[in-house]
C-alpha cells in the first residue's frame, strides 16, 4: 500500500483525536493551574454531554438539532460542574490527593447512574446528513464529523484565548494563576474565579461529549476512553497554560494516531505513557511553564 495514502488520513485522524484530548483536558488543566486539584469525574462530563446531545435530539430531531445540542450540553455540564465544585472540591481545598479520590467516587456513581438510566449498551446519536458524509481533498477522504470536531476545537480554543487575554474575568484568572494570595489581596474574588473556570471547563468537556457522540454510541464509560490521555495531556502541558495544554494534546494525539499505523492500540497506549515519562525527564515542568519564584509551586 502507498505509504502516503496511509499516512495522511491517519495524520488527519490524529488531529481529530488531539482535538478531543484537548477539549477533554483544557478544563482540567485550567482548574489544575488555579486550584492544584484534578477532578477525576471530568470524564463523566464528556459522558453527560453525550447523553444531553441524545436527549436534545429526541426533543428536536431535524438536521440542525445537533447545533442546539452544543449549547444544551455546555450549560448542562457546566451546571453540574458548579454543583461538584461547591459540594466537593471546595470542601477539600488544600488536599489535592483526597480530592482525586472523592471525585473518583463521584465518577463511579455517575457511571453507574448512567448505566441504570440509559442502559449499559449505550445510545446512538445519529449524525445529521450534513455531517454523515465525507469530503475528499485530492486523494484524501475526510469524514465530515471529524472535520467538525477540529473546527469546533479551534473555535473553543479561540474563545478561551479571547476570554483569558481580553476580558476582565480572564485577567482575574491569570492573576490567580500567577499568585493566588496576592490576587486575593488585591480584591479579586478567588472563589468566584475558581468556580467560573471549573464550570467553563466542565462545559467544554460537555461539548466534547457531543462531538464524541458523532463518532460512536454514547456509553456509560464513554468518558473513560478519553480521560486518561487527557490526564497525561495535563501532566505534559505544564501548569495552567493554554498553549502548553494545546501543544501537549497535539503531540499526544498525533503520536497515538501515528503509532497505531505500526502497532496495535494497546501498544500505542503503552508507548504514549513511555513518551510522557521520557518527556518529563527532559522538561519536568511541562511544555510551557509559568515562571514563578515560589519554591513550592
Amino acid at each position: 500500500m502507498d505509504s502516503v495514502a496511509l499516512f495522511l488520513p491517519q495524520l488527519f485522524n490524529g488531529l481529530s483525536v488531539a482535538s478531543l484530548y484537548l477539549l477533554a483536558a483544557v478544563g482540567l488543566a485550567l482548574s489544575f493551574g488555579l486550584m492544584r486539584v484534578i477532578n477525576m469525574a471530568h470524564g463523566e462530563m464528556l459522558m453527560l454531554g453525550g447523553y444531553l446531545a441524545w436527549l436534545t435530539l429526541m426533543v428536536v430531531p431535524g438536521a440542525f438539532g445537533i447545533l442546539l445540542a452544543l449549547p444544551v450540553a455546555f450549560l448542562g455540564t457546566a451546571a453540574i460542574g458548579a454543583l461538584v465544585h461547591m459540594g466537593l472540591i471546595r470542601r477539600l481545598a488544600d488536599r489535592p490527593l483526597d480530592t482525586l479520590l472523592a471525585t473518583w467516587g463521584l465518577s463511579l456513581i455517575l457511571q453507574q447512574a448512567a448505566r441504570d438510566l440509559f442502559g449499559a449498551i449505550g445510545v446512538e446519536v445519529r449524525a445529521p446528513d450534513w455531517l454523515a458524509g465525507s469530503i475528499s481533498l485530492g486523494d484524501v477522504v475526510i469524514p465530515s464529523a471529524r472535520l467538525m470536531i477540529i473546527v469546533m476545537t479551534l473555535l473553543v480554543l479561540g474563545g478561551i484565548a479571547l476570554m483569558l487575554n481580553r476580558s476582565r474575568i480572564g485577567l482575574d484568572i491569570r492573576a490567580v494563576n500567577q499568585d493566588r494570595m496576592m490576587a486575593s489581596a488585591t480584591g479579586i474574588n478567588v472563589r468566584k474565579v475558581e468556580l467560573t473556570v471549573f464550570c467553563a471547563g466542565a462545559g467544554v468537556a460537555g461539548l466534547a461529549g457531543v462531538l464524541l457522540a458523532l463518532l460512536g454510541p454514547v456509553t456509560p464509560n464513554a468518558g473513560q476512553v478519553y480521560i486518561v490521555p487527557a490526564f497525561l495531556v495535563v501532566v505534559m502541558g505544564g501548569l495552567g497554560s493554554l498553549t502548553g495544554t494545546s501543544m501537549a494534546a497535539l503531540i499526544l494525539g498525533l503520536f497515538s494516531a501515528l503509532a497505531q499505523i505500526f502497532f496495535d492500540v494497546s501498544i500505542a497506549q503503552m508507548l504514549m505513557l513511555v513518551l510522557v515519562i521520557l518527556f518529563l525527564q527532559i522538561r519536568p515542568q511541562g511544555v510551557v511553564a509559568v515562571r514563578s519564584r515560589a519554591l513550592d509551586v
Binding site: 489544575f32 492544584r36 486539584v37 484534578i38 489535592p96 490527593l97 482525586l100 486518561v228 490526564f231 497525561l232 495535563v234 501532566v235 496495535d264 492500540v265 494497546s266 501498544i267 497506549q269 503503552m270 504514549m272 505513557l273 510522557v276 515519562i277 518529563l280 525527564q281 519536568p284
Partner: peptide, 28 residues
C-alpha cells in the same frame, strides 16, 4: 518520575495511566 521532582497529583495520574496500559496490554 521522582528524580525530576515530579510528584503529588502528577504521580497519581501517571500511575493510573500505567494501570490502564498494563491491563489493556494483557487483554490485547
Amino acid at each position: 518520575v521522582f528524580h525530576r521532582r515530579v510528584g503529588g497529583t502528577y504521580f497519581a495520574l501517571i500511575s493510573q495511566a500505567l494501570a490502564l496500559a498494563f491491563a489493556t496490554l494483557l487483554v490485547s
